[in-house]
Design a protein around this nucleic acid. Structure first.
Lengths: 134, 134
DNA sequence: TTAAATTCCTACTAATTTACTAGGATTAGT
DNA sequence: ACTAATCCTAGTAAATTAGTAGGAATTTAA
């Protein structure tokens, strides 16, 4: 039940971008890679997932980079983690069409746990994290 | 962030044992292996973890088997999962002595998420699961 | 218009973890 | 003594995660 490195790095990057949002600045992958200590190539892939989920937007070409699409107050940690962590789902059977054919007693438990986790993660905004205000 | 098969099988076994608790019956590994569809050898290892955590007790020799050490009302899903899932921790840095030297902004988040998950899991007893009463 | 800086795309490999197999020792009942 | 069971531990296979790599496309600036 570990968070992947994508989740850790991705959230870190999101918080970095949150801190730049007010100034309207963009951050390049190479700058972000330096501050996280991850290679550019790996970070690229992680940020791509956030872009796909409409959390960040990219400006290509020279002087380009990434920035948040919306205000950090309006972006939740849950959104970010669901975007970068392929498997935020606790078990497979819930979101992959098992539909409780198995009648497994634990299925409801996993579903509720998943709900619980996401509900919690969605109460926290990137702004809060950036302000270290939990 | 997947639950391991140990977590799934372990919880299933615990619920099976919960159903037998009232009658004071024991269940053998081979019987449990049949009902879960897992090999005996693998299940042995999982049950051993529950034994180590004082959730089940073993009776060795002929007519032996396993049973819950306490009433299913007094055993929580959280206890079972923490026993069998080696890595219920969300990230390493929390329980392995990082002690926030890294000053990473996300650390508090992970700690609270972990707390949140466990608090939830500890509100549910094996009895509830056995009764499908969530 | 060319060079530089940047994102974008995708295939591959290495490392780690998880899941499972296997063999036999130990214990207890009949 | 024999049988049915747990116990112990080492090894292997499968899957996932983490990271590497190369180069195409796009935009800006000189």
């Amino acid at each position: 039940m570990k968070m992947s490195s994508k989740a850790r790095y991705g959230l870190y990057v999101a918080v970095e971008l949150a801190k730049k949002y007010a100034q309207g600045e963009v951050a390049t992958v190479s700058a972000l890679a330096q501050s996280t200590g991850v290679t550019e190539k790996y970070l690229e892939q992680i940020i791509a997932l956030m872009k796909k989920a409409n959390i960040v937007v990219a400006l290509r070409g020279a002087n380009g980079g990434y920035k948040l699409l919306d205000s950090p107050q309006n972006i939740t940690v849950g959104q970010v983690l669901r975007a970068v962590e392929d498997n935020l789902e606790i078990v497979d059977c819930i979101h992959n069409g098992c539909d409780n054919k198995c009648h497994c007693v634990s299925r409801n438990l996993w579903a509720k746990l998943y709900e619980n986790i996401n509900t919690y993660l969605d109460t926290i905004s990137l702004q809060q994290l950036a302000d270290d205000d939990l």
